[in-house]
Design a protein around this nucleic acid. Structure first.
Lengths: 340, 340
DNA sequence: TTGAAAGCGCTACCAC
DNA sequence: GTGGTAGCGCTTTCAA
């Protein structure tokens, strides 16, 4: 493998000039830059990452702490990972995985070994064990998710509270008097993932504000169970029923269940779905969606860590960043109350 | 951050001794080893990865080429990734992601920069563009999936052909005279993922051997469509119907559809499912499963690349490694033909 | 069983 | 605008 020394010799310049051509950290005359670039191309030169990291004290690698195969929707975790990796490359960073089963010490290790310049922590829970650890680490990190105590930490997440409120407001506008909230599955609710809590808070607050009744239906995993849950909830409903289904796994089931019960969406019932918009697309859901650009959280997380790394002075930004949900109306012939 | 020099000074030994304590590459007296270890602990020493890589010419990192967010089941891809990362750690390797959207050059880059010592390539397709590239790379790699031309390459995959055959044989044993194969979704079939082809081959061969009729039903995404497809297939069926549903996404739908059609599994119909066993568990599928230990392929892939890296002389093993499917009978009261 | 010292291939400082 | 050179923190000969 050729080294920068070889390039220097071939181009007839010094090794430092080669280095500066690569980094752009000092002006180089057009002529010599061409010569150096030609030499690099001719030799198919690639700088040695280890040597570079050693000399510059930066590895150009970001550690990504991935969640331990939970009962959460793994497809969306995958989506995060690939977007994060692709986005990081745009800024010339690579992604190194840190699995949760190495425990929080895994983070100390990759930082201690100076394998990574910074960290992105996925799926942060309310009382996440990794949080106290990263507070003491000498590298910047960005959390995806909002832990209970987040003072001084850079966190980013979708704004679930706002999403919940928007769902309610949309349905209130359509004239509904009560909404059925088809909840996440128990296993998710039981975990300390506090976005569930935040979503509920948004729903409840908004419902109180507009005087709407909220009926909670548990999340189910089979059509039969879903039909039963929906039927039961319908008994408590006045007027045209409305549903809010935040969890991706529930949405198919809900649509099928309503279909089986003979309810036509947009006529006999309204449904608002809160989720990743991409997932809604894929399912060809004909429902109104209040959701999030799925890539946005990932991309913003990468941009923030890159900013921290490239411009350390700008460090403490706003600690919390909440991504606004987006409303997409799909078919609905139910008229807004004020137009009736 | 403390360096091995600091450790050496504190322990009163030379830097090389510290290095040898870490690597175990030469005998160290019990006494000095203790002293060195104590010093390392006291300073919370962690070796600098860049320096180590530079000096030893090995990064202890494996590149993992992940598929470009396809319409394939992303949950199972995620499962692969996390198992691979965890398994790699057991052998003291880390995992660096290489996304597909950097193209095959991404592989050349991470190898050229000597960021990685070897590669694992996921979801290899029949005529994968990455294959010609890795052939010319000076590091070992292991492919998950079997490309059309795989001479001299280390490939590993689940044995889909055998799985297909086993499905048919199981159903033939139960006395069925025809089987309905609920296929993968079109988008998957159309890609060059040749495990679909291999599975079909296994089914067809075995069916021909035991004189069973195979009815192909397309994979569907909604209950209604599934019911229709099943109904249509049932018209061509003699005797008690039997189903083979290889794709995870289809299995829920199939079970629901049969339920809606009033068929009781294990009495009026037999179903054999070929898939990741873990997914079957999670779905609490009451079906007989012919599938694969989900982690096994991932673990074997890591073991092979680690072996290549640590013992390069043993390089060309058997090029192809096919993981045997496992049969797990779940409820079925249908009696085997020979016991009737 | 241990130590001294020469690199590994870059970066960045100091000089011109 | 360019070159010389001293490290960065390890590994690994060569000597003892």
């Amino acid at each position: 493998m050729p080294t920068s020394k070889d390039v220097a010799r071939l181009a007839g310049v010094s090794q430092s000039t080669v280095s500066y051509v690569m980094s752009g950290r000092r002006p180089i005359s057009e002529k010599t830059r061409k010569r150096v670039e030609a030499a690099m191309a001719q030799l198919a030169f690639q700088p040695n990452a280890g040597a570079r990291a050693l000399a510059s004290r930066r590895s150009q690698v970001i550690g990504l702490a991935i969640p331990f195969v939970p009962d959460l929707h793994m497809g969306s975790i995958m989506e995060f990972i690939s977007v994060i990796a692709a986005t990081a490359r745009q800024s010339d960073y690579d992604i190194l995985l840190v699995t949760d089963d190495e425990g929080p010490q895994g983070l100390e290790r990759v930082v201690g070994q100076q394998l990574v310049d910074g960290l992105i922590i996925m799926q942060v829970e309310g009382d996440d064990a990794r949080v106290p650890v990263i507070r003491n680490l000498p590298v910047p990190s960005v959390l995806i998710g909002i832990p209970e105590k987040h003072d001084g930490l850079e966190c980013i997440d979708a704004d679930f509270e706002l999403a919940g409120a928007m769902c309610v407001e949309e349905l209130a506008q359509l004239g509904h008097e009560s909404v059925i909230l088809v909840d996440w599955q128990d296993s998710v609710v039981r975990r300390h993932v506090n976005y569930v809590k935040r979503f509920h808070r948004g729903v409840d607050k908004a419902a109180a504000a507009v005087g709407l009744k909220v009926i909670h239906a548990p999340g189910r995993t089979t059509i039969a169970a879903m039909e039963k849950a929906v039927t039961k909830a319908l008994e408590q409903t006045n007027g045209i029923p409305a549903f809010i289904a935040p969890e991706a796994a529930n949405q198919d089931l809900l649509v099928e269940a309503l279909h089986n019960l003979g309810l036509v969406l947009g006529e006999d019932a309204s449904v608002v779905v809160n989720c990743s918009d991409r997932i809604a697309e894929r399912q060809r859901t004909p429902l109104t969606t209040i959701g999030f650009e799925p890539d946005e959280v990932s991309r913003r997380a990468v941009h923030r860590i890159v900013r921290d790394l490239t411009d350390p002075t700008s460090r403490p930004h706003e600690a919390l960043e909440l991504i606004r949900p987006v409303l997409k109306r799909r078919k609905s012939t139910i008229r807004p109350r004020n137009k009736r």
